[in-house]
Every structure is written in C-alpha cells, then in structure tokens.
Amino acid sequence: MGNWLHTYLLRHLQVFFYSLGQLTRSPLSLLMTSAVIGIALALPTGLHIILKNMQNISGDLDSAAQISLFLKKSTSDAQAQQLIQQLKGMPQIKKINYISREQALQEFKRLSGFGNALKALEKNPLPAVIVVQPSLSQSNALSNTAATQQLLEQLQNKPYVDIAQLDMQWVKRLYTIMDIIRRGVIILSALLALAVLLVIGNTIRLAIQNRRDEIVIIKLIGGTDTFIRRPFLYTGFWYGLFGGLIALLLVMTSLLLLSDPIEALTQSYESRFSMQIIDFNSTVWLIGGSILLGLSGSWVAVERHLREIEPT
C-alpha cells in the first residue's frame, strides 16, 4: 500500500514536470497564452485593489460624516454636560466631542485670522457645539446613510439643540459610487473569469487535437481516461499559474506607477493615506483563482473532447 502510494505520487510528480517540460518546448506560445490570461485577470484584480484603497480613504472619511449639534446660546455648560451624558447612552453614536463657547471662540480666533474683529464684539457670538460621530458599519454604505439620517432627526429633537447639521451629501455620493464600482468589478471579474476559462479550454482543446494519435495509441494499449486526462489537467494548472503570476506582475507594476501621483493627491487633502499595492490575501486569491480557472478550463475541454477520440 505504501509502495503503491509512493509510485502513484511519483507518477503524478512525473506528469507534473513532464507537462511543464512540454510547455516550455514552445515558450512563445506558453508566454502568449499566459499573457492573455494574465491581462484578463489583472484588470479586475487591479480594480479590486484600487477599490480597497478607496475604502481605506473613506474609512478616514467616517470622521467627516459627523453631525454638529449647535446648542442654544442660553445653554449652560452643566446643561450641555447633561445632554452629553444622555448621548453617550445611545448605541448609534461612536464618539462625542464637546466644544464649549469659549473653546469655539479660541479656535475661531486662531484659525480664522479675524481675532481682532472679534475683540470688537462684546459678547461671544459663537454657540457651543457637540460634535457627534455616528457609528457606521463599513460594509453597507446605503444603510449607513439611512441610519445617519435617522440619527440626525432624533438629535434635532433633543433639548438645548438649536440646529443639528449634517453635511455629508458628498460622502453619501462617494459611498454610492463605490457601491457601483464594487458591483462593476464583480461583473467584470465574472466575465473575465469566463474569458479565461474559454481561453484555457480552447488551448487545451488544441493540445488534445495535436496529440490525437498519441491518445488513440494510449487508449489502444489500455490507458484509462484518468491517465490520459492527467497531463492535460497539469497543463491547465501551469497555464493558470503562469497567467496568475503575469497578472500579479502587471498589477504591481501598474499600481506602483500610479502610487506616487495618488499619494501626492491625497496629501493635498491632508490625508495620511499611503497606497497599498497588493496584500497577501489578494495575492493568494489571485494565484489560487487563476490556477483553479486553469484546472477547470482544461477539465471541461478534456471531458468534452476525450470521448470523441476513440481508436477505430
């Protein structure tokens, strides 16, 4: 049994490298087929990574989706603290930041450059502000906006609140756009995966036709379908692997070329964003998926065409 298993694994290993050897005999056609697969896979992978980076940016933008509660001027600090305690009990709220009238004034003086103008005023014209950051789930942008809207209405009706203001129209749009892109990437991935499947299927079909005589001979001397199928499946495996590696190379090169201008752009928005090229998980998914496509493409081709070739 152990010996049998040993022989079996050895046979597999031999076919594994034999099929690689066959492929490298015509390196140009191997490269071309792999490149087609690579380009087809690079496109959705690249988009996926850009999308992932956008999510990272918009993660920072959660802080932008704040609700500012401008308190009535008559509200005392103690009353404001009372409201804050009340708000802290709400699960929809992640973070609360209180800016008293005095602090608001200081900040305004410091940032606006109108410090001297304010001195002319007898009273502090600024209201106290409670800045509320809603707790958002990353996954579903649309339900976030609905929840935030609801929270806004709730807060509007709290005592001492003069105006509850939410300026997140653009965040909402960003989320929607990202949703559209995400779905687009999924559709594109499905279509291109199908294309890869067809490319590999067709390549394997040609390989089967080219080795028709050999298949007939092997069938005549008692080769099982499994035996005949094996080298073609490994050929599919190699195409998938090389295609995946080319895709990885293309994605990394393209994103490296893009990363400098993108970082320059985000820095101009004072974001501490740094472009992530490709993470380990995505790499595993890309290469693994590519190999899987290679195997299934060749499986389909072999199943379809192997039965047609019979000794006569």
């Binding site: 010996n3 049998w4 022989t7 079996y8 050895l10 046979r11 001979i217 092997i218 001397i221 008692g222 080769g223 099982t224 035996f227």
Partner: peptide
C-alpha cells in the same frame, strides 16, 4: 515502456 507506465509500475 508505455503499457507499464499506464499500469503504474515502478521505475
């Protein structure tokens, strides 16, 4: 050797 390879004999 082909028939023997098919039968899975050792090298």
């Amino acid at each position: 050797a082909l028939p023997l390879v098919i039968s899975g004999l050792s090298h």
